[in-house]
Amino acid sequence: MNGTPIISAKNLTKKFGNFVANDNLNFDVYEGEIFGFIGANGAGKTTAVRILCGLSFPTSGAIKIAGFDVYKQTEKIKKQIGYMSQKFSLYDDLTVYENIRFYAKIYGMKTKEIKTKTEDLLNELNFAHARDKKIRDIPLGWKQKLAFSTAIFHNPKIVFLDEPTGGVDPITRRQFWDLIYKASDKGITIFVTTHYMDEAEYCDRVSIMDQGKIVALDTPVNLMKEYHSRNMDDVFIKIAR
């Protein structure tokens, strides 16, 4: 990897009282990468993502996102990123189009552009017929694909995905990853957390977290070599035990 990192975290630490959720995390993410944050539930993945998105302040550490400081320039960071949270976050009582339009307008996109882009998007997803359906009436897999498409609708530099595929079937997960690759092809940097180890193999590089610490950081292939494993599942079990 070369060039300047688009995300750079040095000694990122977050404490809640005595509990250390993120313990001295150090990592860089480069432009165009698909960077995976792997770990069990409660390993501190979501805490770290929330800090990188400017939703929560770190206790200490130097963190820069797209060149902006997470302490002082959170609002500038927010213009550059997209975010899809673990908690499903489209409005249930709004239609597919109303949701897309709402967020796109908040990001300052023009109404005309929103209209044509929505049409293209829904055609590409084969979902044009559901344009005026309320979110609550569509299946979970579709909701997640839409949430992802909404998160990158305004063409952010980076998109943060916090366990985007929780609770969906393997086929839908595979389709979801196709969307991630498409976004990556367009040059969007992907930062994704997951506890599915097969998904870890889809990433360019992964960092494995355990109890608030990063215990390994490399490409999946290198990690599998290092730990003499045939898949990431084995790697994870060997590391985290």
Binding site: L55, K76, K78, K87, F88, S89, L90
Partner: peptide
Amino acid sequence: EIGTIEQINVTPI
């Protein structure tokens, strides 16, 4: 409660 506020807070609003 439903979590949509997070999505708002992550925008430059």
